[in-house]
């Protein structure tokens, strides 16, 4: 069965939000896409995020995800770039 396309929103914070000029980017993904595929799709959708995406990690539903972690329709996605608490 063909994998359907889904609409995903990637939340942005700190330097990534500044680079994109937005708190989130919406893009289309194939259902079940991996974080590695999301990385490519996000840069294609918003080239200004290339640097942040190359350094950052994705969180799915509030937990860090592996590169081969697959994304489901409705998942909360966040790009976590270099953090600076404290």
């Amino acid at each position: 069965m063909d994998r359907y396309r889904m609409l995903a929103e990637v939340k942005l914070f700190g330097p990534a939000a500044k680079a994109a000029g937005a708190d989130a980017v919406r893009l289309e993904l194939t259902a079940g896409a991996t974080c590695a595929e999301l990385r490519e799709a996000l840069v294609a959708e918003c080239p200004a995020l290339a640097h942040a995406v190359s350094w950052g990690r994705f969180a799915l539903n509030g937990r860090f995800a592996d590169e081969d972690g697959s994304i489901c329709d409705g998942d909360e996605i966040a790009l976590i770039t270099l953090v600076g608490g404290g």
Binding site: F13, G14, P15, K18, A59, F64, A78, I80, T81, V83, G84, G85, G86
Partner: peptide, 13 residues
């Protein structure tokens, strides 16, 4: 503090 600075999603500007 070392671990916090590596993985807690907080940013400062």
């Amino acid at each position: 503090i070392d671990r916090m600075k590596q993985s807690v999603p907080i940013w400062k500007e």
